[in-house]
């Protein structure tokens, strides 16, 4: 298994290599893609990228939580969480690439 961590820089490097824009513009475009996905999700929209996966926003109800260290009860407020569901293609490629 690899143990590298890729960042925005690696994604912009790939755009630079594949599309042939300047490094600076490639970096801006990566940022703008992430920004548009974030904006849609923040507005409560589902983002579905075919053959990659689906990001969706779910509402979680309020509940009583517990501080695991002290055992104290603490209220957990209702909140929105993001879930990512990988596509079949992504699941298959990740499984195959990691020796399964």
């Amino acid at each position: 298994m690899g143990d590298k961590t890729l960042t925005r820089m690696d994604l912009s490097e790939a755009v630079f290599r594949e599309v042939g824009l300047s490094r600076n513009e490639s970096a801006q475009l990566v940022e703008s893609v992430l920004q548009h996905v974030s904006d849609a999700l923040s507005g409560g929209e589902t983002v579905k990228i075919s053959s990659f996966g689906t990001f969706s926003v779910r509402d979680k109800a309020a509940r009583i939580g517990r501080n695991p260290k002290t055992g104290d009860e603490v209220p957990i407020h209702p909140r929105r969480v993001l879930t990512f569901r990988p596509s079949h293609l992504m699941k298959d490629r990740v499984a195959a690439g990691n020796g399964h």
Partner: peptide, 23 residues
Amino acid sequence: KIVNTIFEEIIEALARGDRVELR
């Protein structure tokens, strides 16, 4: 091509067992 490259690069990284961290 730009949009496809970004998502493709993430899948390829995961297929190698790498992580992709987008702060």
